[in-house]
């Protein structure tokens, strides 16, 4: 579904991603783990069109999508739940969801609001409230629900657990699992390596802009290097 080759991304002269390759197959749950500043978020920004890669190639369903802007990519089925959630604080919850469905003109949108509210009853109670008044966890729910409104085939998730209480993290991960069960392909970036590897089937480990390990999630969980560096053992 997604093939990345020799991808390089930089911010004003600094190369944050230095030629990485990765693959996500249809229906797979793949995670990209690594320390702060390893280049994970930059990778996702490039894959979702927020940043233009300086070199390399991205293919999606056998189509070259390298360097396409975000508003084009979402139409082809790639949605990003950005780091820090990025909800529209001065739009209501309902309006945020409507923005998620911006590209859609089909009549099923109405049903998808209900799906979002069923998935997150907390949002249903607050649908007329400004998103800026929600707690961090609720905003994360909204960000995920909003991304799903575009009916993505590939969902990119950037640090969904960041800054959330353990109970909320658990809840968010349960939701992600439910979303994956519906057949959405996932690429998850996480600092919480243990949670991510337990959820996903395969993983990549990123260190200072490069992918240093790629393996099954189970093998990575048993890998002494990974256990030492990312699982705190």
């Amino acid at each position: 579904m997604l093939e990345v080759e020799a991808l390089e991304v930089g911010y004003g002269g600094i190369r944050a991603v230095k030629g990485i390759g990765l693959t996500v197959r249809d229906g797979e749950l793949v995670t990209l783990i690594g320390a702060n500043g390893a280049g994970k978020t930059t990778t996702l920004k490039a894959l979702s069109g927020l940043l233009r890669p300086s070199a390399g190639r991205v293919r999606y369903n056998d189509r070259d999508i390298t360097g396409l802007p975000a508003h084009e990519l979402v139409k082809s089925g790639i949605a990003l739940v950005p780091e820090g959630r990025g909800v529209f604080a001065r739009l209501t919850i309902e309006e945020n969801l409507a923005m998620g469905a911006y590209i859609r003109r089909d009549p099923d949108v109405a049903a998808d609001y209900n799906r979002a509210y069923t998935l997150f009853p907390r949002l249903a109670e607050r649908r007329k409230q400004l998103a800026g008044t929600l707690s961090g966890g609720e905003q994360q729910m909204l960000a995920i629900a909003r991304a799903l409104m575009s009916r993505p085939k590939l969902l990119l998730l950037d640090e969904p657990s960041m800054g959330l209480a353990p109970l909320m993290v658990q809840k968010i991960f349960e939701t992600i699992k439910a979303v994956a069960a519906e057949g959405v392909t996932l690429l998850l970036v996480e600092q919480n390596a243990k949670l991510a590897l337990e959820l996903c089937s395969r993983g990549y480990v990123m260190e200072s802009g490069m992918i240093v390990l790629a393996d099954d999630a189970d093998s990575l969980l048993r890998n002494p290097q990974v256990r030492h560096a990312y699982l705190g053992e």
Partner: peptide, 24 residues
């Protein structure tokens, strides 16, 4: 309106509006 909502979204965060499919 749909465009009006997109205007408000773009005003608040053009990058995220782009992620929603808005040609800012």
């Amino acid at each position: 309106s749909r465009i009006g909502r997109a205007m408000r979204a773009t005003e608040q965060n053009p990058d995220i509006a782009g992620l929603m499919g808005v040609d800012t």
